[in-house]
Design a protein around this nucleic acid. Structure first.
Lengths: 104, 104
DNA sequence: CTCAAGCGTTAGCGAATGCTTACGTAAGAG
DNA sequence: CTCTTACGTAAGCATTCGCTAACGCTTGAG
């Protein structure tokens, strides 16, 4: 999971994941959305692929990328595990409020 | 959200969040769980606090920390947004299966 | 085979990150 | 007030990161 979350730690890479969330895009097309050079995006794509967050498919001389949500499973579980604590606290608060209905 | 996810990009900090997930611990107590020096943990706690991922409470000379799940809201939304794509793909697969019940 | 398109890869650089050691600070004990 | 406890903070260093510029590779067109 370390690899995935560190891949997400960069804003460019997060934006790439949203760009190819529900459609395939070629590396050059992705790069066109950013103001950094194409090799920089290529490196980001390598990191994302290595982390299992995107799929790569070759079509002729182009390489098409697409988000692979399964790669986020570990991180999602981690976040949900911490988040559930917050939910139980809200539940406690709600129960306390039910006991003392006047409180706000 | 950038600050929060970058705070999570370090394994020590993730473990700290789990340690103080549902109980308060003093800085020194937290540090005892790790093999790095206490100042290193103190710096990690500063990062977590800055990102809004932990609450700090002073009690005498001690400082008690506790995970603050609300800080994860932005990241949770981001992950869920990408994750939902995976779910809709599973849904498509399920519907295709419903159309062709023989398939498994 | 030759050429161009579309990408990845490498080298090198400045900035950021995480660590340790040494020092500074606030609160309670005596 | 003095000393100790429990911390945070600053300085310095090695490592990692993200970027650009230059180069290399593979595919399809002719």
């Amino acid at each position: 999971m370390d690899e995935q979350i560190r891949a997400l730690a960069d804003a460019h890479r997060r934006r790439i994941l949203e760009l190819v969330r529900d459609r395939e895009l070629a590396a050059g097309e992705i790069a066109a959305y950013f103001e950094v050079t194409r090799p920089a995006i290529s490196q980001h794509l390598t990191v994302l692929k290595q982390a299992g967050l995107v799929d790569e498919r070759r079509a002729g001389t182009r390489r098409l990328y697409r988000t692979r949500p399964d790669g986020l499973l570990g991180l999602k579980e981690f976040v949900d595990r911490l988040w559930s604590t917050g939910l139980s606290r809200l539940k406690d608060a709600a129960e306390a409020e039910a006991t003392d209905p006047e409180k706000d």
